[in-house]
């Protein structure tokens, strides 16, 4: 694998994470539990889709095969999407959406803090721009985890169940392979192992304030980075790609 191939793959993975999570959040539009949260979730979706757009633009540039950001976002096969499994999980109730976001935001925050110092100027610039949004997302999702965890008995039980269910997808956030190894050596990618402990400390601190906890036995699932997804992604892509697939080659 060349450095250029690794860089394309790395940026694409990050782009897919943000697009797919942004898509999931956008499904809430018009259906939030309270108007203020409807607006907040749409805002998160908008930030993530904005980040995805910048990342796809850069991936397309690195690849240099004449594809643009929309070709990458809309015209790949399911096995070619490289997002982590966490982000494609269905919204469930508001609590599950918040827990999914919480687990992701804490990871993104630590990742982007490091990528701001990436030797790759474009990645550093995207990270620097995105970190402000991610910090806000992190505050929003952490506050809701606390409110729901330490709210009523019902909210506590619901959100604890989501924490338990979604904990299976945490380890995959730290997944690394040859792509990362090549880029870590170049000072381009961040070594996720270097902030894994900090991640767990951070989420555990919030969960503990929320009277919630990770399960004792942490099961693990992965496959997303290799394009092996859960059953949910295919349906998501069917909607996402509908227009581009039905009307090939048209401008909108």
């Amino acid at each position: 694998m060349t450095k250029q191939e690794a860089l394309f793959e790395y940026v694409l993975r990050k782009a897919d994470d943000t697009l797919i999570l942004g898509h999931r959040l956008s499904e809430w539009c018009g259906h939030g539990p309270v108007l203020e949260e409807d607006i907040a979730l749409t805002n998160l979706a908008l930030d993530l889709i904005g980040q995805a757009t910048e990342l796809y633009q850069y991936a397309a540039e690195v690849e240099n095969k004449g594809r643009n950001e929309d070709d990458l976002a809309f015209l790949r096969l399911e096995r070619e999407y490289k997002n982590v499994l966490l982000v494609e999980q269905t919204n469930g109730d508001f609590g599950k959406t918040i827990v999914r976001q919480f687990l992701f935001d804490h990871f993104q925050s630590l990742l982007y803090e490091r990528l701001m110092n990436s030797a790759d100027e474009q990645i550093a610039a995207i990270a620097e721009k995105s970190i402000k949004e991610v910090k806000y997302h992190l505050k929003h999702s952490s506050e809701w985890v606390i409110r729901l965890g330490d709210g009523t008995e019902e909210s506590h039980n619901r959100v604890q169940e989501s924490v338990t269910d979604l904990s299976r997808y945490i380890e995959e956030l730290f997944y690394q392979d040859e792509v990362d190894e090549i880029l870590i050596k170049e000072g381009i990618a961040a070594d996720t192992a270097s902030f894994k402990e900090e991640y767990y400390n951070n989420i555990n601190a919030v969960l503990s304030e929320a009277t919630l906890s990770l399960p004792e036995k942490m099961w693990q699932l992965d496959g997303g980075r290799k394009g092996v997804h859960s059953e949910h992604l295919g349906f998501l892509l069917a909607e996402l790609q509908y227009m581009q697939r039905t009307y090939p080659g048209m401008e909108w």
Binding site: G30, A45, L46, A52, T53, E69, D70, A73, W252
Partner: peptide
């Protein structure tokens, strides 16, 4: 969720957010 490209999707979301 079915907007035809990234730009249209972002604009549509922003517009709906304005309405809210």
């Amino acid at each position: 969720t079915r907007a035809p490209n990234l730009r249209r999707k972002a604009v549509l979301l922003a517009k709906i957010q304005d309405e809210a």
